[in-house]
Amino acid sequence: MTALTRARPVAYLVPALLAVGLTVYGPLLAVAVLSLFDFNLTTRPPEWTGLGNYREIFATPGAGQAFWNTVGYMVAITPLSVLAPLTAAVVVWRLGGRLVAFYRTVFFLPVLVPPAVGAVMWEWILNPVLGITDEPLGLLGIGPVDWLTDRVPAFAAVTVVSGWKVFGLSFILFTAGLTTIDADVMDAARLDRAGEWRLLRHIVLPLLRPMTTVVVFATVVFAGPWTFGVIDVLTQGGPAGGTSNVYYLLYQQAFSFFSGGPAAALSVLITVGFGAVVALQLRATR
């Protein structure tokens, strides 16, 4: 779309800026100020501590591991949150036919399942004693796995369960993105007798790029919150902090920021840290 220079565009932005100012940045500013205090908002007046809360967060046992796990989840979940849904969306779109509605509904099912219930269903599937995963894994030559009490399997389990929910979300975004591809472009390409792969590489993927950027952004930003709910039900951050991430750490620190300054400090750090990552990412993909 061509950008104009005339007229007054500000009116279009006012509702959005007002909303984020009042309900996100205003409170965030308050949190940032409070992160310099020792406070609880109830039984005692706030007391200035400078950067004490930040020092405390960095000294928290497990903070380093939670940070690296956060990065780890971002990377590990990408195949399930970007590649698989992209492939599935394109294949369903190219196939067409009567099964399209079926696939669209089934792939979206996990998103519709209440989060607490979805994680619980997986908890049963992963229970080593009920042993539902034993037989399928046995076929692959893998012995029984203690999913939730061994570090690596537990990390994998949290990733897969989170990915299971996210898959459908990304799928519907890619599907929506595909609908905006102009029929004429495809027809013209077909008249050129372009093969399926060339069509995909030179037309479909480039046209899907705006949506792909969105999905990658969503993965980076939301991998933390998405995994949080799963961690809470499946592992509570264990074994020994092996599946924790910064959001779970924040939850443990205080659950709600005003249980203490360190949680406020961590909130500020998460915001600023992700801000830096996203800024770099946007610069790279522009």
Binding site: W124, N127, V129, L130, D146, L148, T149, T235
Partner: peptide
């Protein structure tokens, strides 16, 4: 003792195992 979490252990007990 099975090396499982709390919720799974309760599920096992309820299942009679």
């Amino acid at each position: 003792q099975p090396p499982v979490g709390e919720a799974e252990a309760i599920a096992m007990f309820e299942a009679g195992r």
